[in-house]
Design a protein around this nucleic acid. Sequence first.
DNA 1: ATTGTTATGGTCAAATAAAGTCAGAGATAG
DNA 2: CTATCTCTGACTTTATTTGACCATAACAAT
Lengths: 157, 157
Amino acid sequence: MPSISDMIEKFILNIVENSEEGIIHIQRNDLSTRFSCVPSQINYVIKTRFTIERGFLVESKRGEGGFLKIVKIPVIQTKVYLERVSIGINNYIGAEQAKNFLKGLVEENILNEREKNIIWQLLKDESLPCDRENKGYQRGKMLRNLIGYLAKEGGKR
Amino acid sequence: MPSISDMIEKFILNIVENSEEGIIHIQRNDLSTRFSCVPSQINYVIKTRFTIERGFLVESKRGEGGFLKIVKIPVIQTKVYLERVSIGINNYIGAEQAKNFLKGLVEENILNEREKNIIWQLLKDESLPCDRENKGYQRGKMLRNLIGYLAKEGGKR
DNA sequence: ATTGTTATGGTCAAATAAAGTCAGAGATAG
DNA sequence: CTATCTCTGACTTTATTTGACCATAACAAT
């Protein structure tokens, strides 16, 4: 007995699979109407199923002309990267750990030096004006999203 | 379904791109008639999209023969540009504003598309798991450090 | 020169149209 | 029977659209 959430997932998945590029724009209200559920259920589906770990990036825009943008990325690469940096949910990523991870990506030609430096500017301690615990948490989020993007790009330059 | 504002933006952008010199004169009422919207919507588009961060200057004249003059600032000395931009970085930087900064840097050839995307992954809302106020504050810090780095590098690629 | 008229453009706040959050209720699998 | 997953709705945040009212410039008629 598939739940509504399962059906919504399937529905979205289908659109993504059949899209060129694996990038789609949908509207939250459209979906909730189609499945006669409350809009926030769409958020639930997105949050539980279209995660980085499963190979998706999601962005959105509010207001008139708003949308959900769902991007499918190659899962296998993503998983490899995620495991390498050992980013689990709620994981703490220290500055050193982040630095080493970036170095690794440069060594593998996934990033060049300049890109590494740019990224470092954004997640070094001085750029995150919050307590240590949060710095680590934020680096985790940031790196996940970065990895998602890089996986999709295939690290090509 | 792009919003009307998006279409107006595209329309203006197209004219600017196809102009010699990157300087155009348009009339607010012409535009609002063409897109059947109220005149003040044009102001909205100008204010949210043709910003200094993205490398545009806008001047206008009222009264008979009035106009909007939109200038795409030509590529200038990177450092000068960066200095100008960094002045615009205050304590709170919203997601849209950050996006505009990045777009501007790309338009000025200081960043390439890929670099812009990488940076965006790190400072978009989804990557900063904290409240709105703090997101803005952090983006400020991050962008300042980024610009500091780019200024040193001279924006060369 | 002064004044009135008309043609522009500018500002701001309210209304509308999305999407996001979160906590609690309900359902289900082990 | 309990832990986890799903569903719901009230409240929040953000982006866009609209309209009422304001400011300025050119022109025409004193």
